[in-house]
Design a protein around this nucleic acid. Structure first.
Length: 570
RNA sequence: UGGGGCGUCGCCAAGUGGCAAGGCAUCAGCCUUUGGAGCUGACAGACGUAGGUUCGAAUCCUACCGCCCCAGCCA
């Protein structure tokens, strides 16, 4: 994964690490982790976090762990563990043999909690959920101490073990840290450490009926794994004092193998325009059928991006280049698109495909002849070589490449106008055949100039445009799916209900497309540039035994379309 | 209104007292058998605002303004 190491200007976390290493803090080790909760699919924002942690480790000769934060059996599922694992492997993050689960440490965490009780730093509280909320106070008023706050160590120990033994019902009691009910930081107002949940856990099954809260489990999980830098998102900054409190008062360092102490560092998580990034919202898009699933190519999920045709390399590049900082930001989707175009321009073999076919007959070309013209596979990469494309009297061209009454700047085909057919001849449009009833353009009659075949004497003659084409006789049918932004506005969150902003034209399925025959033989590849149109991903998953199916990853930059659009706006 | 975080070009983002990197986007030109790619050039007179310190400030100080997060037995 050589592309993960970069020389980019260093971010503030790397600056912290530099200092820590130089001061031999934690023996100068760097050990990071990515801690997903298995309650949904990973999205591009998670990719940023995972890759940040991974590259921090790689760039500093450190280690990187994957740890599932599975402390809430009510929301977590084995299926999500599987999807996260495969997404991360696909992305290229490598945790080697260090795959862990917070639930691996439940026993240690329980023991450590007993230690907290013994030291008088935690107590069993009988207040119910509403009461705890009422006692917590508000942002501006201090809370009140629980009447159970001063139970004896003995009683707390007894009660806590009975909680574990299942003697109480869900929600009946909690274990709380004894900190400060008047702290201006609400997280420090005697936070709940353990709750009773008679629930089946995907890993520990029915062994436990009490589960640790994130704020208690996370620092301990980090500590037990000898994590040095616990990188998380901004909203946890308020939790850092609690993170440190747990480490301060718990005897985690007595656990065999523990050699240091982690610290939490927060960064701003990724936001992007024209999409939503919260699991809750993504779940709704799936549940309400606005998309076809978590892996719908319009989704910002890794599964979606993968099905769309994005490469892990492009996503890595993206997360590296957007940088890391602490200010809320919204990255332009255009930058993600830039990253995949940049890669595919170098690597994707080119083919001709006509998405919306218009028949074209070359009237002065022999109907019995097929010429095989040579076309380069990738002008950016001479090594890619050339292929032969069959050229004949009847062709398909792109509907949009002809206009009967063209505007000024349109320089493709029009009545009486000349254009080059890529790799073949210059043709001239002589006649437009229309449907007698509807008036729709049915066919173009053209003449060709035999002296202008690519590579021949007259071939240097200039025409205003070169268009792509496919011989009707040799055409292979295909289905092509064109994707557009999932949302119409840059910030769907601004809507009272973001669903209102879903783009009704985010998917267009074209079933009458034709592609050149050589594409059928490109069985070892999945990503192509369809000349003049964009980059496409062969979606074998959806092909069954029928037609080839291609998903448009991203279109080519199209300055003509762009100027047309801005004209429309005016 | 308590606490925490943040404010540098349309969007990301360097810069940590010495004369505002880079990328994306945008615009212009060149080139081109992809209106792609490539190449060249333009693009913050100023770093939320106002004061102050200093020979010198985006960088230090003060005040103010704005945005984000926190009152789950979610993570």
């Amino acid at each position: 994964m050589s592309d993960i190491r970069t020389e980019a200007s260093k971010n503030f976390i790397q600056a912290i690490i530099d200092q820590d290493v130089s001061q031999e803090w934690n023996q100068g080790r760097v050990h990071t982790r990515f801690p997903p909760e298995p309650n949904g699919f990973l999205h591009i924002g998670h990719a940023k976090a995972a890759l940040l942690n991974y590259s921090l480790a790689v760039n500093n000769e450190g280690l990187f762990n994957l740890r599932f934060d599975d402390t809430n059996p009510l929301k977590e599922e084995e299926a999500f563990v599987e999807s996260i694992l495969s997404d991360l492997r696909w992305l290229g993050a490598d945790w080697e043999n260090r795959l862990f689960f917070a639930s691996d440490y439940f026993e240690h965490m329980y023991d450590l909690a007993c230690g907290l009780i013994a030291k008088g730093r935690a107590y069993v509280c009988d207040l119910d959920q509403e009461q705890i909320r009422a006692y917590r106070g508000t942002l501006t008023e201090p809370g009140q101490e629980s009447p159970y706050r001063n139970r004896s160590v003995q009683e707390n120990l007894d009660l806590f073990s009975r909680m574990r033994n299942g003697e109480f019902s869900d929600g009946q009691r909690t274990l709380r840290a004894k900190i400060d009910m008047s702290s201006p930081n609400l997280n420090m107002r005697d936070p709940v450490l353990y709750r009773i949940l008679h629930a089946h856990h995907h890993r520990t099954k029915d062994k436990w009926c009490i589960y640790p809260m994130y704020d208690y489990a996370h620092p301990l999980g980090d500590a037990l794994e000898n994590i040095t830098h616990s990188v998380c998102s901004l909203e946890y900054a308020d939790h850092r004092p609690l993170y440190d409190w747990v480490l301060d008062h718990t005897d985690y360092d007595a656990v065999p193998g523990v050699v240091g102490r982690p610290k939490q560092i927060e960064f701003a998580r990724l936001n992007m325009n024209y999409t939503v990034m919260s699991k809750r919202k993504l779940r709704r898009l799936v549940a309400e059928g606005h998309v076809e699933g978590w892996d719908d190519p319009r989704m910002p999920t890794l599964a979606g991006l993968r099905k769309r045709g994005y490469t892990p390399r492009a996503i890595r590049r993206f997360s590296e280049e957007i940088g890391v900082a602490k200010r809320d930001s919204v990255v332009d989707l255009a930058f993600l698109e830039h990253c995949i175009r940049q890669e595919l321009n170098r690597t994707a073999p080119r083919f001709m495909a006509v998405l919306r076919p218009l028949k074209l007959v070359i009237t002065n070309y022999d109907a019995d002849v097929t010429e095989w013209v040579e076309v380069e596979n990738n002008p950016e990469d001479p090594q890619a070589g050339t292929r032969n494309v069959p050229f004949a009297r009847e062709l398909y061209i792109e509907e949009a490449d002809f206009m009967e009454d063209p505007p000024k700047k349109f320089f493709r085909l029009a009545p009486g106008r000349e254009v080059r057919l890529k790799g073949a001849y210059i043709i001239k449009c002589e006649e437009v055949i229309k449907d007698e009833v509807t008036g729709d353009i049915r066919e173009l009659r053209c003449s060709y100039d035999p002296d202008t075949r690519s590579g021949e004497k007259q071939s240097s003659r200039k025409v205003k445009a070169t268009i792509h084409w496919v011989s009707t006789e040799h055409a292979t049918k295909a289905t092509v799916r064109l994707y557009d932004h999932l949302f119409q506005s840059e910030n769907p969150e601004r809507y009272e209900d973001f669903i209102e902003d879903v783009n009704p034209r985010s998917l267009e399925t074209l079933t009458a497309c034709v592609v050149e025959p050589a594409l059928t033989e490109a069985t070892d590849q999945d990503r192509f540039q369809f000349l003049r149109q964009g980059y496409f991903f062969r979606d074998r998953q959806d092909e069954g035994s029928g037609l080839m199916v291609f998903n448009r990853i991203v279109g080519l930059r199209d300055t003509w379309a762009k100027t047309q659009q801005s004209k429309e706006k005016r």
